[in-house]
Amino acid sequence: MILTEHGVYLRERVLELARAGVPFSDRTIKKNLFSAVARATYAVADIIAPVCSYNATWERFYGVPDDRIMVIYNGVDERRFDDRNFRPERPTVTAMVRIDPLKDIETLVASAPFVRERFPDVVFDIWGPIHDEAYNRQVVELVGVLGLEECVRFRGSTSDPAAAYAEASVVALSSISEGFPYSVIEAMMCAKPVVATDVGGAREAIGECGTVVPPKRPQRLAEALCDMLARPEEAVLVGKRARERALELFTLSGCLASYRALYAEVASAVPVGARA
């Protein structure tokens, strides 16, 4: 059995429980249930394939030995996410996220006034479906409270994310928990500079080709965004380097080849009689 864990299951469930405000007894029961599911799955899996090295630290904490962990990075299609060499007229900060508390869009919205102070015509484009209706209302309310209706635009889902990335001056991610964020490597593949919070595998993905900031720090996020927007030429160079890194490490073909090799290796270790 091969377990591919895109986030860290237990970590995300605990954050959900924390936010949901469930009574203590429910929370304890649910946490124990989730914990039992996660630990049982770790125990029976032959190989656990996290999508970044950072997540492996959590799996080790939950008792998985090193020799059963094999990191395989996510990959994206380099033909679909291409470098369109497009520079938007207005400074544009793009986020490609579902509207969900784990993505902490409030922090991104809260950073907007700071950015707007230096770039009055800046626009924040938030792409992605609504995953949590209550949280969406909360974020929209925050936009109203901060008077950002002209600055922050909720663009909804898109079937052509590459086009959305192309319109960006810089791509932002403000999550409080991540596995190995697709939006980061897609943006990198599209040759866009990225500013992301330092959670999960974000730092590992970005390397030297972008900026990481602590989560839940709107001002720090704003500073990093302003830094990119203030030096557009350099931002373009950062974007080019990001695509080179993505082509080297995060291609879909590379990812699939790694999984195929892993499946073959595990399958060859299983006795013939057990395969039926």
Binding site: V14, L17, V22, P23, I176, P215
Partner: peptide
């Protein structure tokens, strides 16, 4: 976070610290 919700155990504290 709810009545009586508090991080319980090292892993929950680690999760919150990380976030």
């Amino acid at each position: 976070f709810g009545i009586g919700w508090r991080p319980k155990g090292v892993d929950e504290v680690a999760i919150l610290l990380e976030s």
